[in-house]
Write a protein that binds this DNA or RNA. Structure first.
Lengths: 210, 210
DNA sequence: TAGATTGTTAATCGATTAACAATC
DNA sequence: TAGATTGTTAATCGATTAACAATC
């Protein structure tokens, strides 16, 4: 096991490993080789072994990997057992879509609360999660710290809310706004979900196709 | 200008270039050097010049790049002027969120129609876009071809609808389901927006932080 | 045991960075 | 003209792939 900085290419592949291993596990598959795993993910066996070797030795010569064990190891590496919790900022369509349709707990994250300003949602529950007024953000996080802030507010509010989240101690921001956040706080991570960038990449690809 | 296959790393940076150049343009900035552009994007000047050289020569020695011109060139490269149109499949919270809050036209894509099965939305309009029953998909696309299918249906319906979209001639699928689509049709591109993968990457990063 | 498959080291490939002649 | 900055070629760096001894 090498203890080096893990490249972002590896990090982006880990969730796919997890997802696929979980599917295999649900399907009752017990063992798998790097070769088989690679071909169903479109990767080489070498790459998978190389990736996993960043974190430990999970296989066995002549046998391969135990699906359940490897899945659990990858889950652990991804931080799924660290008890991360999240609050969501903005209960518009997108925030609501995430609350109602996205299963945070399947990623090991507990969605604890939501915040908005609209009187018609503040004080209510959405998918069992209470919605508070955004004025109560700091007070709430003081009592109930959260590691992740999910940012689904309108773009104009993004920078201000992001700053407040960081001030209140979140460790990561899952940013769904089209704003490029620049946080001064070191150690706080931003994960962007830029819909427009994704659509433009698709637009490029279909425009190039022969 | 080299005419080679453009790497996916470059393609992923192009939308950021576009976004930033557009911001500069809106702010009234007329010219910019690769150096200045690089430092505001966290990239080297070399990389930006190298990236752009895949597509042509857009700058001028001693001057740099004209912001408006370069933005328009990047827009063109990204296919924003090709008249791409899209249909959206699934008018649940996420589909609705995209229809109401995401500006397709800002990416050069016209959202033409939506499809669902629920009687309470079929026949209505959402953000000015008509919602049809999914049974009418092929008939509609026969009359009004679209290059992009936006997939916001429940996971269990994803594979079937994707196949129908491809059969009806779309060139790209913008996939918001957590299903890994495997299309047999060559030349049809899938762009995945995997929320869970993104959240797990964030989870990894905050779990590693010191 | 023989076959299979790992973890790791070495080789290759590709992407990023540096350097610089060309020139506005 | 002198300074600035490009586009491109060469050098470096990092990531992927191949090879193979170890061993289940």
């Amino acid at each position: 096991m090498k203890k080096q900085k893990v490249s972002s290419a590896v990090i982006r592949r880990l969730p796919r490993y997890y997802r696929h291993l979980n599917d295999l596990y649900q399907a009752g598959v017990e063992r798998i080789s790097s070769n088989a795993l690679g071909s169903s993910l479109g990767l080489t066996a070498s790459q998978i072994r190389q990736d996993l070797s960043c974190f430990g030795e999970f296989g066995q010569q002549g046998y391969g990997y135990n699906v359940g064990t490897l899945r659990d190891e990858v889950a652990d590496i991804l931080g799924m057992n660290r008890g991360h919790s999240a609050v969501i900022l903005g209960v518009g369509n997108l925030g609501r879509a995430l609350m109602e349709n996205f299963h945070f707990e399947r990623s090991g994250v507990a969605l604890a609360a939501a915040f908005d300003v609209a009187p018609q949602v503040v004080g209510r529950q959405v998918s069992g999660v209470p919605v508070y007024h955004v004025d109560q953000l700091e007070e709430y996080l003081g009592r109930q710290p959260a590691s992740i802030g999910v940012l689904t507010v309108p773009g104009r509010a993004a920078a201000g809310i992001a700053k407040r989240l960081v001030g209140a101690g979140v460790k990561g921001i899952w940013n769904f706004t089209n704003i490029e956040l620049s946080l001064e706080e070191p150690g706080v991570v931003v994960e962007d979900v830029h819909f427009a960038d994704s659509l433009l990449a698709l637009s490029y690809m279909i425009s190039e196709a022969p």
